[in-house]
Amino acid sequence: MIQIINLHKSFKNKPVLKGVNLEIYDGETVTIMGGSGQGKTVLLKNIIGLMKPDKGKIIIDGIDITTADKKTLHNVQKKFGYLFQGSALFDSMTVYENIAFGLRHMKLSAAEIKERVKLYLSYVGLEGIENMYPSELSGGMKKRVALARAVAYSPQYILYDEPTTGLDPQTAETITDLIMSLQKKLNVTSIVVTHDLKAALKVSQRIAFLYNGEIIDIEQPDKLLNTSNLFLREFVTSALINQTNYN
């Protein structure tokens, strides 16, 4: 379980998060939505310990990572898989080496690692590209390889940072379906940060809305369209209009 309590984070005296409170229960998928620059990625990076908050607590399975020592934080980080917005594949390594990188700590034999890489590449529909380099892949393929890398070592929690941004609708749909199928196969706890309302409605059990540095509303997807929160209603309406225009 992840508990975020009164989280504050500023950059050069400009507050981005101003007291975020959120609980994510085991096995559920929560989507965090909000406008650009509202601090969604900052929130994700605080949760995984890549950034240190100015104030507040982040408790993961009973451990407060904001006060944890380096070793404890490192052990908590091993429970997470993270899909970066720009994929963040290691460009000097092949697809195989990228996916195998997270498996190095699992005391697996070379044959087992090979098997696992093959299996997770098949999950994301990219068999046979083990020897290619990231520069030889399209944006959608990179996202899928990054997804395979994030889940290959069976993390307990997966964080998705804008998994469908910058992709065409069909590829975005494929990624969304992949997230759902991996969710079912691996039964992990997930946090998705996205602008893509369609994807959010499809993958989440709850949708949290981040506005002005705070979570101002949390709704179930079926209740989102009838929300009484003015900001959220405005955001959802704009998102729906944009999506209709784009389609």
């Binding site: 995984i48 898989g81 963040a88 460009d91």
Partner: peptide
């Protein structure tokens, strides 16, 4: 380059310092 393309952050998330 690894820092600005988040490859260093990715390393942390993959259990490597």
């Amino acid at each position: 380059t690894m820092r600005v393309t988040e490859q260093i952050d990715a390393m942390y998330t993959l259990g490597t310092d």
